[in-house]
């Protein structure tokens, strides 16, 4: 059975005038790395909140359908039970950092403290997680003294350290430099290889194509198209609906009109583009 199951999910915030998510049905296997793309306002963050249980437990509002993770229904769990299985890194790291801790090390330990992990184990887990995401040198800094990209790494690390079975990431690299972005994709891929299920909202199409197993394109609260990265990310539907596409795809589409791209399939990655333009 799929690890994550969404059945006819529909949702509306208390303040919204219409449905923010509608008719979402989806299955995700354990260890799968799924990326969600979509224009602003498509419902990507709301879908993250639904997976993490914040919708509806925290935001209230009206929900119908089901969110199921590992055979348990979100509607029948409390948020604190849910948080043991599912971790969410927020789009804006500033909204996630606790404000209760003086150092990055303590900030990352915060979640483990709350679930009563013994001190020695906690220390080791925090150190391991910081080394994994490459922020060991920030351990003694104040979370508020960091740059945006560094804060994002801290926010990601403080979720990874909890070892959730479902990791939900809302634009985790939006403020990162390109190398940092690639590293985060690499870390997330590694987590997936080790069996963690990952749902990641992202705009950076080139890296999605290189690392994710599947792409789901959301538009106006509904699934527009889903499938393998190279199929979804080269689809004409994306351009027609205001999605960002990679410069390789865009250049090859134009080149095709001028007879300079002869392959049937359009490229998403650098390697695909090089291969296609060489032939």
């Amino acid at each position: 059975m799929a690890f994550v199951i969404l059945k006819d999910l529909a949702y509306q915030y208390p303040s919204s005038t219409g449905l923010v998510l509608e008719n979402i049905s989806l299955q995700i296997q354990e260890g799968e790395f799924v990326s969600i793309i979509g224009p602003n306002g498509a419902g990507k963050s709301t879908l993250c909140y639904a997976l993490a249980g914040f919708v509806p437990h925290f935001f209230k509002g009206e929900i119908s359908g089901e969110v199921e993770v590992d055979g348990r229904k979100s509607s029948e769990s409390t948020l604190d039970e849910w948080a043991l299985n599912v971790g969410l890194a927020f789009q804006n790291p500033f909204n996630q950092i606790s404000g209760a801790k003086y150092t990055v090390f303590e900030e990352i330990a915060f979640g483990l403290e709350n679930i009563g992990v013994p001190r020695d184990e906690m220390k080791k887990r925090v150190e391991d997680a910081m080394s994994l995401t490459g922020i060991s040198d920030l351990a003694d800094r104040s979370p508020y003294s960091l740059s945006g990209g560094q804060q994002q790494r801290v926010a990601l690390t403080s979720i990874l350290v909890m070892r959730p079975r479902l990791l939900v990431l809302d634009e985790p690299t939006s403020q990162m430099d390109p190398v940092g972005t690639r590293e985060v994709f690499g870390v997330v891929r590694k987590m997936a290889e080790e069996g963690m299920t990952v749902v990641m909202v992202e705009h950076k199409v080139e890296w999605i194509a290189n690392f994710a197993d599947r792409v789901i394109a959301l538009k106006d609260g509904q699934i527009l198209i889903e499938g393998k990265p190279n199929e979804v990310l080269t689809s004409d539907l994306l351009i027609e609906n205001g999605f960002g596409i990679s410069r390789y795809t865009s250049a090859a589409r134009e080149a095709r009109k001028r007879g300079l791209w002869k392959k049937e399939k359009l490229p998403v990655t650098l390697d695909e583009a090089v291969e296609g333009f060489k032939s």
Binding site: P178, R182, R247, L270, K278
Partner: peptide, 24 residues
């Protein structure tokens, strides 16, 4: 400084184009 050249710049380089590409 952890910056990668733009996608088309990298593509141009890999294809052996002489000029540095910045735009489509």
């Amino acid at each position: 400084t952890y910056v990668e050249p733009p996608q088309l710049t990298r593509l141009g380089k890999r294809l052996g184009l002489k000029e540095t590409i910045t735009k489509q």
